[in-house]
């Protein structure tokens, strides 16, 4: 029996913007599920407001975003703003997709604690999520 008081990590995986390349997002969702987490998957074409609102309502610990269209420098800051506007300040943010090295510093400054570029393994992502979620009741 698992003790019912055990902490369940909840992760939101979403694709902001319009690109439909969700292979990575789905593989990551599945890897997180297979490592015992609850993954709220909202799919493609999510606006920053939809993502922030889902993060709020689902009370997730972690939000993972994926963009392959190159719109990350426009859309990621908008997601961060939308989260702040809702008082959701304690979620761990990570990002994946086609993100050039030169954007990494700016995204870190924005609050993205994990940035996973092409070639990253799901194991790295799972370990990142586990390590970043602080024990909470």
């Amino acid at each position: 029996m698992t003790t019912t008081e055990q902490r369940q990590i909840r992760v939101l995986i979403a694709k902001p913007g319009l690109d439909g390349h969700d292979r990575g997002a789905k593989v990551v969702a599945r890897a997180l599920r297979d490592s015992g987490m609850e993954v709220i998957y909202t799919g493609i074409r999510q606006t920053p407001e939809m993502i922030a609102e889902a993060a709020l309502q689902e009370d997730v610990d972690v939000v993972g975003l994926s963009i392959l269209s190159g719109a990350h420098m426009e859309l990621f800051p908008r997601v961060v703003e939308a989260l702040k506007a809702r008082g959701v300040s304690d979620v761990v943010l990570f990002a994946g997709g086609i993100i050039p090295e030169e954007d990494v510093a700016a995204l870190r400054a924005l609050g993205f604690r994990g940035i996973f570029r092409p070639g990253a393994s799901t194991q790295e992502i799972v370990e990142f999520v586990r390590a970043s979620v602080e024990p909470r009741e």
Binding site: E38, I40, G43
Partner: peptide, 10 residues
């Protein structure tokens, strides 16, 4: 795995 994928928001 005791994990889950929750997709109803779609």
């Amino acid at each position: 795995t005791s994990g889950a994928i929750l997709g109803d928001r779609i």
